[in-house]
Simulated assay, not measured.
Amino acid sequence: MDETHRDRDAEGRARNARPRDGLGRPLPYGTEGVGRQPEGVVRSPEETLREAQRLLDGGMPFHAHEVFEDAWKSGPEEDRELWRAMAQLAVGLTHAARGNAVGGARLLRRGAAVLEAYRARGPYGIGVGALIGWARELAGRVEPPETGAVARPAGRGRATGGVDAAAEAPRLRP
């Protein structure tokens, strides 16, 4: 396929059809990639957590993020911040695994901060306290120390070797 071709869906909207790896990075056309998560799937909280855990355990946090994003967009208003925070944790792990330590740490901490509001009630059996601890601990491990010698542009993290996404996958429930 022509690399300059712009993929479109049935309604004519731009949709990148390039295959992706387990961390959601685009691969060259014709390469075998990891199947994408269908968009807009409405799942119960139980189904959301089960599917996201399966993907996290398989080293595919980018895909788990998409499952959480579906829950965030389709669920009841009172749960939207919960699912958004869960998506941020999955994307934080994705960035850490891709080698973007600064961005990964930032998203892990942001998701953990939002989850604080859910610590006491632990909705849907989610181990909120353990997830907060996991996110903060991983953020502290992956974030490079600031040397002050070189200023980095805003929004740009220093790439490192990355972490093993499957080995670092959190348990969503105790």
Rank of each mutant, 00 (worst) to 15 (best):
G24E: 00
T147K: 07
G104Q: 01
A169P: 10
R152I: 03
G122T: 13
E168M: 14
Y124Q: 03
A71W: 00
A167H: 02
A151D: 14
D57F: 00
R121G: 06
G40N: 11
E51G: 01
V67M: 06
R50T: 15
R173L: 09
G162I: 07
F62C: 03
D70M: 00
K73Y: 14
Y118E: 05
D9S: 09
L107C: 04
A120H: 07
T147G: 15
H5G: 05
R98K: 14
R36C: 03
T147S: 15
P123C: 12
R80N: 11
R171W: 07
P153N: 05
Y118Q: 03
L93N: 04
E78G: 08
V114S: 13
G133M: 09
Q37I: 15
A52R: 00
E168K: 12
V67T: 11
Q88H: 14
R98A: 12
V42R: 14
R6L: 15
G148N: 04
W134K: 13
G103Y: 04
D57H: 03
L23P: 06
R13E: 12
P19W: 08
G133R: 13
A169H: 06
G58N: 02
G58E: 01
S74A: 14
A149R: 14
G140A: 11
D79F: 04
R36A: 14
G22H: 07
I132C: 12
A166C: 12
T4Y: 04
E3H: 06
M1P: 11
G125N: 08
R110V: 11
L115A: 10
D9N: 15
R84Y: 06
G59I: 03
A97Y: 04
G148R: 02
G127Q: 10
A52Y: 00
P61R: 01
A154G: 13
D79G: 13
V41N: 03
A85S: 13
E116Y: 07
A165T: 06
L23S: 10
R43D: 05
V34N: 05
A14I: 10
R15V: 15
E69D: 15
G140S: 10
I126Y: 04
P153V: 08
A151C: 04
A120G: 11
G33N: 07
A87M: 09
V163S: 07
R110P: 01
P144D: 07
R110S: 14
E3N: 04
A139L: 06
V67E: 00
R109V: 06
R18E: 13
L23E: 07
V163R: 03
L23A: 13
L108G: 01
W72E: 15
R20V: 15
K73R: 15
R171A: 15
V114Y: 06
A64C: 13
R109D: 15
A167K: 11
T160V: 14
A87W: 01
G161M: 02
L49I: 13
